[in-house]
Amino acid sequence: MVRFENVGMRYGMGPEILRDVSFHLEPGSLHFLTGPSGAGKTSLLKLMFLAHKPSRGLISMFGHDVATTSRADLPGLRRRIGVVFQEFRLLEHLTTYENVALPLKVTGRNEAEYRDDVEELLTWVGLGDRMQARPSTLSGGEQQRAAIARAVVGRPALLLADEPTGNVDPEMGQRLLRLFIELNRLGTSVLIATHDRALVDASRAPELIIQNGELTYRD
């Protein structure tokens, strides 16, 4: 599903942030991505959700070589990836419902087709009574759940979560982990970037460890 081979990445003319990164994620797998701050976790995720191009190496997403995929085909690949951003990135001028429905709206589908699904999902993540609220009026945990709902609403094949428990208490962190595990059981491949050792230890899933831009694998 996701294959990185000797991938290197740098910002502009700066130093290489990622060096010779190679790994492979199977369909339906659950992995953690760990490492100290500044090690390159977010940069690696940026490559995976196609927000950045590698400076060298091969990245294959869903069987497509990213370097040779035409620009017109990239939105289709992105729609197969759900992303929970570290800083949520909910759009302030839209309601919680509109934010969560965004990945479906951009496909050009009629709202009547997906409205029930979005409302059901929001209820499932505990935001059924906050659908018309603006993100600024939501608590950190509510924003986190809205961001997760937006990431999974399109039933992505791959879910990438950047520090998804960074803004919630340990109890909510465990609840969110159960949500990711449930999604994984339903067939979604999940990669969670986190500092939270308790979260990693609780799931006992394989770990991709990134340190000084280099990646190692721990089962």
Partner: peptide, 8 residues
């Protein structure tokens, strides 16, 4: 955000 959620 529109770009990253797959908007053409």
């Amino acid at each position: 955000v529109l770009h990253l959620v797959g908007a053409p």
